[in-house]
């Protein structure tokens, strides 16, 4: 194993890791937004919205994220959607992970006992007041861990955007293999940086989860 080479190129990999982190953060924010909207739609009292929410989840969980990215980035221009690779990556992955987060958020909300809602309504709270004062604070605590799992998957799936030439960690590894012919070292380096990002995120999620639990 050529450790000298690894030490020489790792600063470039660090830079690429920053791109992976940026991508992950933006994707997570978009995913959470989509997830909240998706869950709201799925739990709506309007049939049309429930249908749209269910269709969103089925379509984006039912097709490979890579195909979704390809349709957006390579197919987009044909229908007038011109996006930079990075933008396409954030939007494509964000909407994809949003479908998973929709189910996470919805699951947490419906797991709250209906007696809680009844108690809130009985006191005179409106449906909305009952939701944000009683159901949501309890559901949010239940969401932390499963959303952490979604986040873990999301970070790993950012590797897919190498296929649409976003210069992130995986793409960078591939590029250096082109010039060094050392796939083992280059992918190992990328792998090490991925695990650092993911392990740190996992610890942060576990910390947050402990913090929000009710005594």
């Amino acid at each position: 194993m050529d450790t000298d080479l690894m030490l020489r190129v790792y600063p470039f990999f660090l830079e690429a890791a920053l791109v992976t982190i940026q991508l992950s953060v933006l994707t997570a924010l978009l995913g959470l937004t989509m997830g909240a909207l998706g869950a709201a739609a799925r739990l709506s009292r309007f049939g049309v919205l429930r249908f749209i929410g269910a269709a969103y989840v089925s379509v984006f969980r039912g097709t490979p994220a890579l195909i979704q990215l390809f349709i957006l980035y390579f197919g987009g221009p044909q229908v007038g959607i011109q996006l930079e690779a990075f933008e396409a990556g954030v939007i494509g992955l964000g909407v994809n992970v949003g479908a998973y987060m929709t189910e996470t958020i919805r699951g947490a909300i419906i797991s709250i006992d209906k007696g809680q809602r009844e108690a809130a309504r009985t006191l005179g709270l409106s449906q909305f007041q009952g939701f944000y004062k009683v159901t949501l604070p309890q559901a949010a605590r239940l969401m932390v861990r499963p959303l952490g799992v979604n986040l873990n998957m999301l970070i790993k799936s950012t590797a897919l955007v190498a296929a649409i030439s976003v210069v992130e960690l995986t793409y960078t590894a591939q590029r250096y293999i082109g010039s060094t012919y050392k796939p083992f070292e280059m992918f190992l380096l990328a792998g090490i940086l991925y695990i650092i990002i993911i392990y740190t995120t996992g610890r942060a999620v576990a910390w947050l989860d402990r913090r929000v639990q009710i005594t």
């Binding site: 007696g115 809680q116 108690a119 009985t122 309890q138 009710i214």
Partner: peptide, 13 residues
């Protein structure tokens, strides 16, 4: 109209 439930339904948070 106050109501008291069999299973209390206190807000645990």
């Amino acid at each position: 109209i106050g109501m008291v439930f069999q299973h209390f339904n206190l807000f645990p948070h």
